[in-house]
Simulated scan of single mutants.
Amino acid sequence: MKLGFIGCGNMASAIIGGILNKGLAQPEDICASVKTQSSAQKIQNTLGISCTTNNLEVAKTADYLFLAVKPQFCTDVALQIKDALTDKQVIISVIAGKNLEWLKEHLGNDKKIIRTMPNTPALVGEGVTGVCPDNLTSDEDLQNVLTLLRSFGQADIVTEPILDIVGAVSGSSPAFVFMFIEALADGAVAEGMPRKQAYDFAAQAVLGSAKMVLETKKHPGELKDMVCSPAGTTIEGVNTLEKEGMRSAVMDAVRACIQKTRKL
């Protein structure tokens, strides 16, 4: 199985790293393309795979071809590779905002295409990816792609309308979580805690809290109530967050991301 990546930034590198770490492919089975020769050399040195500046070369040789370029570059890339693609290849899009209809129009209606939306925690093997296949993709091909995507975290099938929501609730949200961790640490620093220690405590608290949601399967509100003792310190903090509109601010941020995605 030959894997190709057109675009090899942080996300594609995380995907490749997961695949290699799990032994699902060998470095010689993976080829990527990037804009500059210096970037190609860096990828080769870092990941040990073949890397070129020729998108067409990658498109011709891959059984499973990942498109991992920025949305603004997709039209140019599609024009470059369209005639080199075959109906036997599986094309996996990691491009935000470009739906199956757009991809079919620009790459060919006879092509097997799977839209995906991974997130940056893939860099540490804790990613989550929404997966939306077209009606030409076989069950075998879909299972092969899911296996690749699960090499760096979770991957689940969703409908295409849900995929834009996935981009916000898991794709963009790490930025919101990082802001929250930074704010927690800033509050601790303001009261005298050393900054490095504050980051460590805040980050571990967020990690542990997320793990409780996933492993206990309890409603987040129930878990919150478990921390809030009557007349205690935590409920005072919760009261402040409610006054400041934390919930509505986060909801608005998620919806803003979704609306932006739909305009891409």
Rank of each mutant, 00 (worst) to 15 (best):
V77H: 08
S39L: 07
S173D: 01
K224H: 08
N239W: 01
A32P: 12
F178R: 04
Q154G: 00
S33I: 02
A205T: 15
G237R: 14
P194M: 08
M179S: 06
N99G: 13
K260C: 01
T233S: 15
K88E: 09
P220V: 04
S33K: 01
V254F: 13
A183I: 03
L142R: 14
L103Q: 09
G17D: 05
Q26F: 08
D76C: 05
T61F: 06
T52L: 04
D134V: 06
P27V: 03
K60W: 02
A96Q: 06
A96V: 15
E242K: 15
V158C: 10
G7P: 06
V158M: 02
T233L: 11
E126M: 15
Y199A: 03
T240P: 06
N54E: 12
K211H: 13
R255C: 07
I114S: 10
G153F: 12
G127E: 03
L3E: 02
L103G: 05
L207Q: 08
C132H: 10
A122Y: 13
A40M: 10
L184Y: 06
L264Y: 00
A40E: 11
D156C: 09
Q80N: 12
N135V: 06
I15P: 02
P71F: 03
A190W: 03
P230N: 09
N135E: 13
Q26V: 04
V94S: 02
N54P: 07
Q154S: 13
M11E: 05
A210T: 05
R255E: 11
T75G: 00
A84E: 08
A78N: 10
S13Y: 07
I113T: 12
K60T: 07
T261D: 06
V58G: 07
I6L: 12
D29Q: 15
Q41V: 00
T52P: 11
G23Y: 13
H106V: 03
Y64A: 07
A198G: 10
P118R: 05
V69R: 05
M251R: 00
L24E: 02
D134S: 15
C257M: 03
G208S: 08
A185E: 02
K218M: 10
V166H: 12
G97S: 07
G192Y: 09
V131W: 11
D252T: 11
E126T: 13
S93E: 01
D110P: 09
P133W: 00
A231E: 09
V158K: 11
V227C: 09
D252K: 15
V177G: 02
N21W: 00
V189D: 02
K217A: 12
D83H: 14
E140C: 11
V254W: 10
I95C: 15
G9Q: 04
C51D: 04
L103F: 08
M226K: 14
V90Q: 05
D63V: 09
I157G: 05
A155R: 01
M246Y: 14
R195F: 00
S39M: 11
K112P: 09
L85S: 11
K104M: 04
L79K: 15
L85W: 00
K243D: 01
P161C: 12
D164Y: 08
S33T: 06
Q72E: 04
Y64Q: 07
G108S: 06
P194H: 03
H106F: 13
C257Y: 03
E57V: 03
T129S: 12
C74I: 14
N54K: 01
N144V: 12
G221Q: 06
K217H: 15
I114Q: 07
T46M: 05
E236D: 10
N54G: 05
T53A: 04
K217Y: 07
L184D: 01
F201Y: 13
T75C: 02
A210R: 12
